[in-house]
Design a protein around this nucleic acid. Structure first.
Lengths: 214, 214
DNA sequence: ACCTGAACACCGTTCAAGT
DNA sequence: ACCTGAACACCGTTCAAGT
């Protein structure tokens, strides 16, 4: 529990600015207005102080982003495990992680952009190593299997975010050709919009089956 | 073959500015100095014209990025196919695509950021649909399998780029704990740096085996 | 048709100066 | 210790004006 300031406007009198308050306000801008709108000057205005005060409390913009990413990673650290056998538990870890990250896909994109993906995935990595060991997977193949699952998750989240942002990807002239140049009738895009959830489970299932039976 | 200007400095006299020349120069900045250094003003300076001339020839910055992404997609369209049986050919498509994209990972990231990933993957998608059909995979599972392979590739490329950029991800205090709080001895990061190529082939193999035997 | 400079509304950042 | 305004070096973009 930290002290809260008002949603907008200048600061209430009596509360002095702290590093945490600055980062709180930055997080709020990030979530409500998006990354592009997060500026030092805008952040200062929201707090009712001069832009240079930000530098005193948290440092330059990179330091601000580092602090925000630290907070995001801490928020997204929880992973749940369910299921009886090893396969089900591994799939449950990956699925719950994906679900959590999808709800904050913009923040995940920022974490990734700042090069902190490994830290974001650390709790899930620990769980996966444990579950794989319990399922009898060890030796040099184990870290490979863990990373394969994590890659699947982050790839899925990063792609899903793009699909949300750009529901109908702008087709170029070439893509609008009704029939392939070779005479076949291959549609340029999947005929039905693909269920990303189903797609994820499909690949994950294939991967986990291989991992636990080799 | 298009007319080329000098590497830097002002334009040679006699050659009038065209849209293609502007985009050429933009591409050059993108490749040699990176996305962050690509500015309208810098581009104009490189061409020896006023910044406002860029607007006349190609439009605003979004229009410039669109044109650059179109060109990148055209450049990266080639995909090769090798191998006798269906499994080998599908793996060869995915691997060659990954290799091509990895050589231009920064440009791929831009394409992805601009929401044009689907267009980038269109030629590979066509090939995959064809090969899967030849391998006897059809029905509603086919587009799912195709997209699963493509997701694997783009995920691999986006992650690999991050690893290149940030060889040692900045560890937080919590990550530096030598031993897990539960008493187990799980290393926070994979003990050996993972071979991304091997990782990719591992998941791809699992996926293709599932696709061609279900 | 093509190109210009001036201007506007922004950025991040530094720094000397205040209290 | 904490906060300020002024200033610097940038951005993208618009627009009236030139030829």
């Amino acid at each position: 529990m930290t002290v809260r300031r008002g949603q907008a406007g200048s600061a209430p009198p009596g509360a002095s600015l702290t590093r945490d308050l600055v980062i709180d306000a930055g997080m709020q801008i990030l979530e409500t207005e998006g990354f592009e709108r997060l500026t030092i000057r805008g952040l200062a205005a929201k707090l009712g102080v001069a832009a240079t005060s930000i530098y005193w409390h948290v440092g330059d913009k990179q330091a601000l982003l580092d602090a925000l990413v630290d907070r995001i990673i801490a928020q997204l650290a929880e992973v749940s495990v369910r299921g009886r056998d090893g396969q089900a538990r591994i799939i449950s870890i990956a699925s719950s992680l994906r679900k959590t990250l999808l709800e904050r896909a913009e923040l995940v994109a920022l974490v990734h952009h700042q090069g902190r993906t490994a830290a974001l995935f650390l709790p899930a990595r620990r769980l996966l190593v444990k579950e794989l060991a319990a399922a009898g997977v060890d030796g040099p193949a184990a870290p490979l299997a863990v990373q394969a699952v994590l890659n699947l998750v982050i790839g899925s989240v990063l792609l899903d975010r793009q699909i949300e942002r750009q529901p109908a990807q702008r087709p170029t002239a070439e893509e609008r050709l009704p029939i392939g140049a070779d005479g076949s009738e291959l549609p340029a895009h999947p005929p039905d919009p693909i269920d990303e959830e189903e797609l994820f489970r499909y690949t994950l299932g294939a991967l986990v089956r291989t991992v636990t039976t080799s």
